[in-house]
Structure formats: structure tokens, C-alpha cells
């Protein structure tokens, strides 16, 4: 078993086959129990890196090792639904479901045996400071900040080993931002690996490790 929960080896990625690499020969390591902040200018490839790490995109070359195994060889659906949780920048919640249902659906998709899914979903939503009256509201009736919190709760719902978060506090006020960071810190203390793509210096400060991506010219 690798000492790193996630390890990048000579990772390259290009949008177009044979085109210029936006990520070129990246070697990074991520450990359990730490919060990582990936920073960099716009266009540096932060979100692309997160897509690669979460298995939504395939690297042009190189490897991403999850607990020592190349994720290219792991069932990508199992990887995304059980092993890692993703908080998307644009939340990507299902509009026809309520906040609680969105969280419960993730639990269902993970296939993990979770008792009292509804209760657990409510607890998670309350944990991210969503008001009780908003729990059964449709997603489209929630504000951006509220949707952000639902997305975080969804990523936490099946207790993945790693949580990827793309600007998780971007739509949140400072108090909620702090609350979210506290939750993430707690999760890190529980042994989870938290990888955050952010522009926020405050979030970076609260991280254990900061990786800065440079734009390749």
C-alpha cells in the first residue's frame, strides 16, 4: 500500500490530440489527513487537473495512482461513486430533486449500505448550515450558496477517501466559508484527503499544502 492516497506521475494533458500540453509532466503526491490547495492563474489548468484526478478526463500520458493503483485501470464509475467525492464549481445538482434527494441519490449510486439515508442526508445538510425549511426545497429554489452547500453535502454523503472541491467556497459568505472549511478540516482529521482548487487566499491559508500551477507558455 502506497503512503500516498493519490500520486501523479509525469502527468500530461492536452485538449487536442498532439496539441500543446496544458499540464506537462506533473508529479504531485497527496496524503491522507491533509488539505491541499491547488492555486494558479486562470487557464493554468486547475479545473482540468481536478477533472483528471476525479476520473472525468483521461490524461494524455502519465499516471494517476490511487492507493498505488492506476485509476485508468479502476472502474471509473466505482471510482467516482465510492472512492472520491467531487464538489463541482457549477454544483451540478439535479434540478428536479430536492436538496435531501440530491444527497440521497449519491448514496444510492455509491451502492454502499447506508442505513437511514434520509436522516443522514438531513444531518449532512444541517452540518453545512442549510436551514431545515430548505431541506425539501427544489434545488432551483435555493440560492447559489445554498446549492454549493448541498453539493458539498452530496460529496460527503458516501464517505469517500478523497474529496475534490472546485472553488467550494466561491459562492459563500465568510461565515459559511469558515464553517465549510471547519467541516473539511474535521474530515481531514478523520483521515480524508481534501484537494481544493481555489483562488481564495483565505482558503489557501487554511490548507496544509499549497500547489501552484504555472501557466505553460
Amino acid at each position: 500500500m502506497s503512503e500516498y492516497v493519490l500520486e501523479l506521475k509525469d502527468l500530461c494533458y492536452s485538449y487536442v490530440k498532439g496539441g500543446k500540453n496544458i499540464i506537462d509532466g506533473l508529479n504531485l503526491t497527496f496524503e491522507k489527513g491533509k488539505i491541499y490547495a491547488i492555486v494558479g492563474k486562470s487557464g493554468a489548468g486547475k479545473t482540468t487537473l481536478l477533472s483528471l484526478l476525479s476520473g472525468l478526463a483521461k490524461p494524455t500520458s502519465g499516471e494517476i495512482l490511487f492507493n498505488g493503483s492506476d485509476i485508468a485501470k479502476i472502474n471509473k464509475y466505482n471510482y467516482r461513486s465510492k472512492l472520491v467525492g467531487v464538489v463541482f464549481q457549477s454544483f451540478n445538482l439535479l434540478p428536479y430533486l430536492s436538496a435531501t434527494e440530491n444527497v440521497m441519490l449519491s448514496m444510492d449510486i455509491s451502492g454502499k449500505k447506508i442505513k437511514n439515508k434520509k436522516e443522514l442526508a438531513k444531518k449532512l445538510l444541517e452540518k453545512v448550515n442549510l436551514e431545515e425549511e430548505d431541506l425539501n426545497r427544489g434545488i432551483l429554489k435555493l440560492s447559489g450558496g445554498q446549492q454549493q452547500r448541498v453539493a458539498i453535502a452530496r460529496a460527503l454523503s458516501y464517505e469517500p477517501d478523497i474529496i475534490f472541491a472546485d472553488e467550494p467556497t466561491g459562492n459563500l459568505d465568510i461565515d459559511t466559508q469558515n464553517d465549510i472549511m471547519k467541516i473539511l478540516r474535521t474530515l481531514a482529521n478523520e483521515g480524508k484527503c481534501i484537494i481544493i482548487v481555489t483562488h481564495s487566499p483565505d482558503v489557501s491559508k487554511l490548507s496544509d499544502v499549497i500547489y501552484e500551477l504555472k501557466t505553460i507558455k
Binding site: 464509475y77 467516482r80 463541482f88 439535479l94 449510486i109
Partner: peptide, 12 residues
Amino acid sequence: YEIGVLTAIGMK
């Protein structure tokens, strides 16, 4: 979009 979200969160 629905298909994208469901598959992104791991639904086969």
C-alpha cells in the same frame, strides 16, 4: 445535463 450529472457522480 441530467445524463452528465448522473454519470459524473458515478452512475453507470
